[in-house]
């Protein structure tokens, strides 16, 4: 099995949207045969040091960060609708990052 690829998902309260995205992305990536872990955070706790422990950042809205993240940002808000056709492009973007990490 390939190595675990770690993403962070963040939303305002850290309780609803970020957990929904965590559950959905972990499940879909498992189905696609990847080892992906997502941690849910409050946006206010996201900083450069925290992001340095992750391979990608799943965002819900275009959030103003006070710094420019060095890891890929993936716009994941569409997942919240739970409509497969809307979620697929997000999952494809996640898979692309996972493949790049695994190829390293």
């Amino acid at each position: 099995m390939s190595r675990e690829v770690k993403f962070i998902a963040a939303c305002g309260a850290g309780v609803n949207s970020s957990h929904q995205i965590k559950d959905a992305v972990e499940e879909e990536m498992r189905k696609r045969g990847y080892n992906v872990k997502v941690d849910a955070y409050m946006i206010k706790d996201v900083n450069e040091d925290l992001l340095s422990h992750y391979d990608g950042y799943l965002t819900i809205a275009k959030t103003d960060l006070s710094f420019k993240p060095k890891i890929p940002l993936i716009d994941a808000g569409a997942i919240l609708y739970r409509i497969p056709a809307m979620a697929k492009p997000v999952y494809d973007n996640v898979e692309k990052v996972v493949k790049e990490i695994n190829a390293k």
Partner: peptide, 11 residues
């Protein structure tokens, strides 16, 4: 997930 349940209810 409560939010997911709300979205499923709407969908």
């Amino acid at each position: 997930n409560i939010l997911a349940q709300i979205m499923d209810f709407l969908r």
